[in-house]
Structure formats: C-alpha cells, structure tokens
Design a protein around this nucleic acid. Sequence first.
DNA 1: CCATAACCGACCGCTTCAGTAGGATTTAAT
DNA 2: ATTAAATCCTACTGAAGCGGTCGGTTATGG
Lengths: 156, 156
Amino acid sequence: MLFSTKAEYGVRLMVALGRQPGSKPVSLSAVAEAERLPLSYLEHLVARLRRAGLVTSTRGAHGGYSLAKPADEITLDTVVEALEGQIAPMECFHETPEGKVLCSHESDGDHACATKLLWTRVQGGVTKALAGTTLAELVEFAGGTAEKAPPVGSAA
Amino acid sequence: MLFSTKAEYGVRLMVALGRQPGSKPVSLSAVAEAERLPLSYLEHLVARLRRAGLVTSTRGAHGGYSLAKPADEITLDTVVEALEGQIAPMECFHETPEGKVLCSHESDGDHACATKLLWTRVQGGVTKALAGTTLAELVEFAGGTAEKAPPVGSAA
DNA sequence: CCATAACCGACCGCTTCAGTAGGATTTAAT
DNA sequence: ATTAAATCCTACTGAAGCGGTCGGTTATGG
C-alpha cells in the first residue's frame, strides 16, 4: 500500500471542510459523524494539518476547523505530505532543499545506484498527480457545496 | 515511504542478474556480496521473483539464478508487484480483472468517494512509471554489461 | 457555571519489516 | 562415495508503524 489511512481520512476531512460555505468553522465531531470516522483518531490527523498551516482552529463552544486558504489554492501534495510525512518512494531517497534527489547508496564513488532511475520516475509520477490536484477539484468531485448536497453539520 | 526495501533489494538483484551475459546462472551469494545485502534475506526475495516467473533457478553446485526473459521484455511493474504485492495507493482500492478501479467506501449509493479521483491519478502515475521502465534500461543505467564494468562474480 | 470543543500525551493490540537460524535437498567436482 | 556449493523451506525475533482509545487540560459561548 502506497499510503495509509492517515492520508485517506485526512483528505476526506479536508474535503469536508472544503464543502463548508463561508468561513464558519466545522467541529470535528460533525465530520467524524458524517464520514463515519473515529473522532479521537481524527484529532491526531487534524493536528498535523494544523501544524502544517493547512487548517485554522477556533477553540471553545461552537468552535471547529476551517481551511486556512481557499480550496483552489490547496494542492494535495502538501496535504498528503502533512499527513504521511515526506513523500519518497524509498528509504534511501532524500530530496535536498534545491530539489535534487539523493540516494544514500551512492557512497561508492559516483557510480549511480541501479534503482535511482526507477525511483526518480515513480517519485515524479506521484508528485505530479498530487501537486496537480487541488482540494477544490475533490470538493467538486464529491458533490459540490451546499447546492446539491448539504455540508456536514446541517440537519439530517 | 511508498515502497520497502523488498522492492529496493529485489530490483537490485534483478539488475545484477541482468548484467550477467549469456545464460550462466549467478549465485545468490555472489549478488549478496557485490550488493552488500544479507544473503538469507535475499533468499526470501528471490523466492517471490521465482514464484512470479521472473527468474529461473538451477540447483546444486555452480547453480544460481537467471532471468526468465530478456531484460528488455521485463517491465518493472511486474517486478515490484512480485516483491511488494499488489500496487495500490490505498487499502480500499481494488482493481478488477477488467482493469476497473473500485473503492470499498462507495457502499452508500452511487455517490463517488471524495478521494477516488485523487488515488486514481496517483495510481496512474505510479503504474505508468513502473510499466514504462524496463529492466534493460536499469542495467544500462547501472553501467551496462561486461564491457564497462564486470558482472558480479568476476574476479575482483 | 456548564456544555462544547480544541488540545495533548500516554498507552495498546496488531501487523509488517528486516533479518536470522537451522535445516533439507539437489548437484558438480574430487 | 564424499564433500562442497548451492537452492529451497519453515519458523522465529526485535523493532517500528498503524489504527485507535483514553483521560485529562484548556478555552469559550450561552
């Protein structure tokens, strides 16, 4: 499996927030109920999203979470990375700040690691798919906002 | 991490076999020494490759493993799948024999799962990268066959 | 004041990973 | 025939991550 449920649940959480019109915060319990996900587990995930600056929180009664940016400015690579940690096909793969890819097996001289070409291509494929998808697309795909289907928290 | 060292070690093993000219089998211990990998662990990996029909074995002294097909007819998706199991971005993702993608969260009516669009794209990116790479390319990339660098098992 | 809800850290059962261990079988060479 | 080299097979193990729970603290609107 490429990704764990952390990415799955976290993305669904983000979509749920994206469906909320305006800037009214959505409580985690509302999301948990709508998506049938354990509340206490969602707390861990949303903490990662908050630390990554993707959502903002308002505490206290009637509080909750909102997207920190418009949904069409949020690409899924940042979301998945916040949830799963650095996206790399392989343990030995490090990406430098300048975007260069390093392989820790290349210690023996400059003779390139046999697998580097492969993992670089895989990395490219995944990154392209994630960075080329915006949260707004997923919200749209999931059934749009209030018009067609009510956002979470509305009366059943 | 997208893949574990099973894919890493296994692909390096396949490249090592691909560097061997002719059909002379290469012993696992030779590969283990050349690639600095634990022999007993490689045994597990090569067993998967053999069961998948990617390598053939000859037992007894002077035995070893050879590629079951020419390197340019082996695409890396089959190799990685043999090593890691079915390639899917997410637990809930099943591919039917006809190539259709199913998501187990789509039980509630026909309303598509919010994340399906995303995982489908990721899946496509990875599959394209893996299926579009042949073992021959990696062998070439790693330094070609006997000409430039001797295959494993040759005198040091 | 009290219900609601965000925050935080510890814990737990389970599975997988990476690797080891010990043997058995087969085969080539001496 | 013996032996060394090799594939093959099963079982085991320590460590880590996954998915989730629990209890408690803090903040806030009514």
